[in-house]
């Protein structure tokens, strides 16, 4: 029963990840791609718990899930800060150009 539930949930999660991969593939901006990667990373933590249920080693895989969620969070924060920083540099360039046009 537990195994059947785990297999069904894992397959459904994997199927529902395909639209998210589509958004990562064609995303018009970079932020869409980061958003999709973030969603998939969060769902991978759930998939790790499901895999642990299938192998009967949940107590080990839950630790992996904690580590993966932590890495996902840190990655999202770092990437958004990085984009923020580079973007403010771009903005500075644009302001310099505006000042030159005046």
């Amino acid at each position: 029963m537990t195994h059947l539930f785990a297999i069904t949930m894992g397959a459904a999660l994997f199927t529902l990840m395909i639209p998210v991969v589509y958004r990562i593939w064609v995303g018009p901006t970079g932020f869409d791609r980061i958003l999709g990667v973030n969603v998939i990373g969060t769902k991978t933590a759930v998939l790790l718990v499901i895999i642990g249920t299938l192998f009967d080693r949940v107590e080990m895989f839950v630790d992996f899930a904690i580590a993966y969620a932590l890495l996902n969070f840190v990655g999202a924060i770092v990437i958004s800060r990085y984009l923020n920083r580079t973007i403010s540099l771009n903005e500075m360039d644009a302001r310099e150009k505006k000042g030159g046009a005046k």
Partner: peptide
């Protein structure tokens, strides 16, 4: 953490004039 990362990403996109 998930709302926090969403907020940070939204702020980055907003400052990118998206």
């Amino acid at each position: 953490t998930s709302p926090t990362s969403s907020h940070a990403l939204m702020r980055a996109a907003f400052e990118d004039d998206e």
